[in-house]
Design a protein around this nucleic acid. Structure first.
Lengths: 210, 210
DNA sequence: ACCTGAACACCGTTCAAGT
DNA sequence: ACCTGAACACCGTTCAAGT
């Protein structure tokens, strides 16, 4: 029901910001080019002056959602920095509806999340690992983070408005428990990967290029 | 160009099998209800007598793709069984185009992959971990596997038919190298999680329910 | 530089009706 | 029990044309 008059002209940035907002309001399945155009009071075709296609727009949306997670907290241990980074990514994703799915898709397509990957690698590299280990370790962490939060957000949406399994009816108290155990499970997964990496460091297994 | 006459009547199983085959042939974006109906020589609406909607069909497709990975190899160590299971899931996914994306979506939706999750948990449980650790550990592994193979399959498709980054032109030799290093990275990720779990076992950290 | 208008080639899903 | 025919309410994208 937004009736604010539109500016005479939009920038590409405006389109991306509006897309992030629409994503958060209606979810990924309803984030369509036509609906986005509608909220901006322009024709659908006008969007294609600013972005080449929907996939590219979604990649830009993903990068914007992740934009505050690129910096590595300096002056701490590599394992602490890595865990902190993983948690920062989770927080950024939880801030927008369906964000994990959008980011996971863009990352899989190789279109987004580049700065975030760099940040994770930087944290791993602090541990003095070789390049291959750094790359593989960072991407293992990223995959876990995206998969976990994707599940988390999907369950939240299902429990919020769906019948799901009619046998288990969730009360607000259960909802808090679910959120707490999701956070605990996330932390556990991160710990698993970080300590696995630490173990690798101790074992000094050679992992030089293919 | 299949011109084989269709049977008088299809079963739900026939629909699922045809969907898996179509997925492998044309990929997920082109796996539409209308196109599936076309390959079966029936009207699109006829599909809805067999399945309630596309989401449910895709969940059934996911379960079928994973169907040969549910059993735990008996008589080995828990960590060996777990790693073997992870590799079995990867193999099953690599057998069909875009399989990782289909399975990841179904798992996130909570609609499929149940038997596979049970199998992973059974392997972890062999290590004598408590229920929470078993659940969280198994799902961490599954998230990594799905994320990794999703990337792997997406890159394979991009390199096969796309311009991608015109700066790097991939030769068949590079293609082999890429496949080998993908396998190595996968194995490394699995090792990270398994050894992280082993470490947890040694440390005997209490992780009783929320 | 930025947008409109109109079209193209599609989607998933429902539902009465047929056999 | 299984399928047809026809419709509904949408999609993403292109492209000439306007300002």
């Amino acid at each position: 029901m937004e009736m604010a008059a539109r500016p005479l002209r939009y920038s590409r940035e405006d389109i991306i910001v509006a897309a992030v907002e629409l994503l958060d309001n209606v979810g990924l399945p309803d984030l369509t080019m036509r609906r986005l155009a509608q909220t901006l009071n322009i024709q659908p075709s006008a969007l294609y002056w600013h972005v080449t296609d929907k996939q590219t727009l979604l990649a830009a949306v993903a990068d914007r959602i992740l934009s505050r997670t690129a910096t590595v907290p300096a002056g701490s241990s590599w394992d602490g920095a890595l865990a902190a980074h993983a948690h920062a990514i989770r927080s950024a994703l939880l801030a927008y509806r369906d964000a994990a799915e959008v980011v996971a898709s863009s990352v899989a397509l190789g279109l987004g999340g580049d700065a975030t990957v760099q940040g994770l690698r930087a944290a791993v590299a602090m541990g003095g690992f070789d390049d291959n280990t750094t790359r593989a370790g960072a991407s293992a962490i990223l995959h876990f983070v995206l998969g976990h939060v994707w599940n988390e957000q999907q369950r939240a949406h299902a429990d919020g408005f769906d019948a799901a399994a009619p046998s288990v009816k969730l009360t607000p108290t259960d909802w808090n428990d679910a959120a707490a155990s999701a956070a605990a499970d996330f932390d556990f997964g991160v710990t698993l990967l970080v300590s696995g990496l630490a173990e690798q460091r101790h074992a000094r297994v050679s992992r030089t290029g293919a």
